[in-house]
Amino acid sequence: MDTALVIGGTRFIGRHLVSELLEHDYDVTLLNRGTRENPFADDDRVDHIEGDRTNDSALEAAATIDPDAVFDCVAYYPKDVQAATRIFADCEAYVYISSGAAYGREEIPKRENETPLESCSPEEATDDSDATYGKRKAEGDRAIEAAANRGVNAMSVRPCIVYGPDDYTERLDFWIDRVNQHDRVVVPGDGTNVWHRAFVDDVASALRIVAEHGEAGEAYNVGDQRLVTLDEMVDLIADALDTTVDIVHAGPRELAAGEIDPTDYPLYREYPHVLSTAKLTALGWESTPLESAMEQSVEDHLESDRDGREQGPDREAEERVLGILETL
């Protein structure tokens, strides 16, 4: 494959995907509304079509360039996937970004074709709340399977929580800022919490590899091949910053002193969320070493104006918790 259409492509995962494709000698066209700065505006290997992907006519206009591969970074509703797999039915590969949130049962690990997906009612399929995000992604996965049954080479990639440079969610920035600014870092629970994460460059390479080697109708999980606990993540951040911190564990009772709930912390999840990556690994994919991934993430944080402080408890509330713990 030589040409690719990336629907989205300028913000986070899409931005890194375009860089991945360019590194592998693809000519790339972006389809988006043009409302954000285009980091590839000066690259003559990247063309741009302005249009709203929720408008079928915009997709049909993009289809006239006859891309070999289509990567759909901004399909948030099942109808988006249904329209795209119809309009790009003749391309060599269509890859939809789904989510680990599409899984409908808590088990360790969650496996493609084994762990059930979320259900999705017609009302939920058009809802725009966070509560239906996983359901809508799951219904998009079912649209991929239906398209494959019609002969379309459509596949999906299911990332867990994505982190890395350009991450506008600022979830990891919260923790980097805490480690960078304070000697003592409050970690909810006992520090062994596990929420599987995926480095953004690894998601980008997964998308390309699935387009090139995946099977129609299949879904592929992507996440770091080595998982770390919340404590270990904080230690990785400290190492990348060349500093040390004291990790202070606080349970629900202690956190209540600052009117904090454990789930107020980004990247904390009460039940472990772990995805099997064996299926993707079998295609030749591998993840970036965690130390390198965190070093890149920290470097980008330091060069940005992001601090993530709105993503979790404020420090003043944590100081009240620390005060209580000192008296115990």
Rank of each mutant, 00 (worst) to 15 (best):
V245E: 08
L236C: 12
V248L: 08
R45M: 02
G214L: 06
V222E: 03
V185A: 03
D130Y: 11
D300E: 09
T277S: 01
G104L: 07
R184M: 06
D201R: 08
R184D: 13
A293S: 03
T244A: 14
D128L: 15
T169P: 02
R45H: 10
V95E: 01
D80M: 03
S99A: 12
S297C: 11
V248I: 15
D166W: 15
G191F: 13
H249L: 07
H273F: 12
R36K: 06
E124T: 14
L22Q: 02
F40D: 05
A147D: 02
Y220H: 04
E212Q: 03
E254H: 03
A61I: 14
R320D: 11
V245S: 02
V274I: 15
L172V: 14
G100P: 11
R315T: 13
K279A: 11
V74S: 02
A131E: 13
H273Y: 12
G308K: 15
A278V: 07
S98E: 03
I176P: 00
L5A: 11
P252C: 06
N113S: 10
S121H: 09
L5T: 04
T85V: 15
T288I: 06
E20P: 07
E254G: 08
T263D: 00
I176G: 01
D224W: 01
V74E: 00
S205H: 09
A211C: 01
A154N: 03
Y268R: 12
E318D: 06
D27L: 11
D43K: 09
P116R: 09
T192L: 12
E316S: 13
V152Q: 03
A219H: 14
R105N: 05
P272E: 07
A317Y: 00
A211E: 06
D2A: 09
D2Q: 06
R15E: 10
S119I: 10
Q296Y: 13
E114G: 04
K137G: 13
G14V: 11
D177R: 14
V321Y: 02
S287V: 08
D235M: 07
V234R: 07
D177W: 14
P78T: 03
A256T: 10
M155W: 05
L17Q: 07
A257V: 09
R105Q: 12
A131H: 09
